[in-house]
Amino acid sequence: MIIKKISGYELEKELPNTSEDFFNRSLVTYERDGEEETFHLLYVRFFEENMKETTPFEKNPLFTIGEREYLLADIVALVALLKDEETKNRKRIYINEENEFKKLFNNINIDYIKEIATSLQQSGSYKIN
C-alpha cells in the first residue's frame, strides 16, 4: 500500500436544521493493488475538543513539518488505517463512541506518523510494507 495524501477538516452546516458542524472528517488517499482509494473517517468533534482525554496529544497542531502544521483531523484516518487491517476493506467509518476513538490511539507511534507525513511532503508518497 502506498499512502498518497492525508488531510482532515471540520464539517460546516449546509442547512440550518442539520448537525454537520458537530463533526470532523479525516481522509487518507492511498494506492493498493494499482487502484487509488480514499478512506473517510467521520468522528464527533467533541473528541478533538477534549484531546487530552481522548488522545495522547495535548493540543493542535500536533506537529509541524516544514511549513505545514498537522492537526488531529489530518491523522485520525491514517491512524485507523494503520491500526486495523480490516479498515483497508472499508471506504467510510463513523466513530461516535469515545472509547472507540480512544482505542485508535492506544500504543500509537507518533514518530512513525511523522515519518509518513515527512515522506508525503518530500516525495508525495509513502510505501507501507
Rank of each mutant, 00 (worst) to 15 (best):
V76H: 06
K88G: 10
I75W: 04
R68N: 06
L81W: 08
R92W: 14
Y94C: 13
Y70M: 07
T87I: 15
K88N: 13
Y94L: 15
L81M: 08
L71A: 11
V79C: 06
A73Y: 06
L78W: 05
E69C: 02
A73K: 12
R92A: 15
I93T: 13
A80H: 12
T87V: 14
G66A: 05
V79L: 02
G66T: 00
V76S: 01
E86D: 11
A80P: 05
L82N: 01
R68Y: 04
G66W: 06
E86P: 09
R90P: 07
R68D: 03
A73W: 01
L81T: 04
G66Q: 01
N89T: 10
L81Q: 00
K91G: 14
K91A: 13
L71V: 09
L81H: 02
L72T: 02
R68C: 00
L71G: 05
N89V: 08
E85S: 10
D74I: 01
V76K: 02
L78S: 05
K88P: 09
V79Q: 04
T87M: 12
R90D: 11
L78Q: 03
E86Y: 15
N89G: 15
A80S: 14
A73P: 08
R68M: 05
I75V: 11
K88V: 12
V76P: 00
V76A: 03
K88S: 14
R68F: 04
Y94E: 14
G66K: 04
R90M: 15
I75C: 05
A80I: 07
I65E: 04
E67R: 09
E69V: 00
R92N: 13
R92V: 12
R92T: 14
A73V: 09
N89W: 11
N89I: 08
R90H: 12
L81D: 06
D74E: 05
L82V: 06
A77V: 03
T87G: 03
A80T: 09
I65Y: 03
L72S: 01
K91Q: 14
Y70A: 01
T87Y: 09
E69T: 07
G66P: 00
R90N: 14
E85A: 14
I75G: 01
